[in-house]
């Protein structure tokens, strides 16, 4: 019963923190109806955009550690998923899954708002399988 309640509440209101780790702002993230939070400590889902460069990588790792369990990570945009055109750049540590574990990948340069929402919904579905 308790488990069901927790799962339900997690699914119904995911709180999101956006980590922009060297992105070009193209992935217009601000337009989903899910609550964006100001602190990773309050977040359920981390949305990471950008290539994760040398300077940002330790910070991204720290933000990931600050996020309470169970946490999900969505890598948003071609840069975050594969490095995109910046793949061979000297300042690149990423893609994101080299730095922190990623649950959902959203492709596109930039991804359409619908794709972003779809990615978040995919992430929410994962709460079904996460144990309380």
């Amino acid at each position: 019963m308790f488990e069901k309640l927790v799962k339900w509440s997690r699914k119904k209101s995911p709180w999101i923190f956006h980590v922009s780790a060297g992105s070009c702002n193209n992935c217009d993230i601000e337009r989903f109806g899910i609550l964006l939070k100001g602190s990773p400590r309050h977040a359920d889902i981390l949305v990471v955009t950008g290539i994760v460069n040398r300077q940002a990588a330790p910070r991204v790792r720290r933000v990931y550690e600050q996020t309470p369990d169970p946490k999900l990570v969505v890598a948003l945009g071609n840069c975050a998923v594969s490095g995109g055109i910046f793949k061979n750049g000297y300042n690149m540590v990423g893609p994101v899954d080299k730095v922190i574990p990623v649950d959902v990948y959203v492709m596109g340069c930039p991804p359409r708002p619908q794709a972003i929402i779809d990615g978040i919904v995919e992430a929410i579905k994962k709460y079904e399988v996460i144990k309380v």
């Binding site: 922009s20 060297g22 300077q55 940002a56």
Partner: peptide, 11 residues
């Protein structure tokens, strides 16, 4: 600054 540096000029 520098959290966004991607080395575009070199690329």
């Amino acid at each position: 600054i520098g959290y966004n540096h991607r080395g575009i000029e070199k690329l």
